[in-house]
Design a protein around this nucleic acid. Sequence first.
DNA 1: TCCGGATAACCGCTTGTGCGAATACATCGC
DNA 2: GCGATGTATTCGCACAAGCGGTTATCCGGA
Lengths: 110, 110
Amino acid sequence: MDEQLRREVNLLHANLCQALADPTRILILYALAESPRHVSGLAELLDAPQSTVSRHLKVLRDRRLVTTSRDGAAVHYALADPRVIDALDTLRAVLTSALSQQAALAQSLS
Amino acid sequence: MDEQLRREVNLLHANLCQALADPTRILILYALAESPRHVSGLAELLDAPQSTVSRHLKVLRDRRLVTTSRDGAAVHYALADPRVIDALDTLRAVLTSALSQQAALAQSLS
DNA sequence: TCCGGATAACCGCTTGTGCGAATACATCGC
DNA sequence: GCGATGTATTCGCACAAGCGGTTATCCGGA
């Protein structure tokens, strides 16, 4: 198979898809898309310890999906690229189609 | 946090994002987007045993990302929803931006 | 019956996660 | 400048889940 595409997909996966491979991180991205927040705010929002949130943020940070800026003692997190949300919304649309299709199928069988 | 969004994201993750959490499956999706194929064709393309390919295909099939149809003794696999590729391409665009940004940063530091 | 494909069980391995504890970092009062 | 405090990151550990590969089995259509 095409080595070029292979490398590119590996890059894509390693850099982005893996970051989306955890529901908590997707929630963080949506939360940040709504409005930038501090770590403590996210922790409260997600009802998780700071250490857990911080580690998820590190994953997103390393892949440059979020940007950071100091705000006094706190750290401000914001979405780096809104297109990530676009992509997720596209996937949600796909999911909606698949589910309704599935529902129609189930109905036709009942 | 909003229980509604929480459930929806969990659904999104469980149904789609998890399917994209493996580079082999992404390659399969791109391969099918290019042209529908048989299992044996995919196995050859990916240079992997049939059982491995079949297992990946099961994941994609269960999540309705691919469709199947019999073609004589063989089974024809096709991409169920081209929007998945759209979403992946969007992510590739995000990745490209992030990488060029990173390169520019590295250059400014050297 | 033969072939393409699906499924299952098993193994070894890697990776990711959550959590708590410990550590850095910045600010404030003195 | 120096601790004290609130905030964030990192570390260590135990645990679960996923993947690859092999093997074997079952199923469907030619």
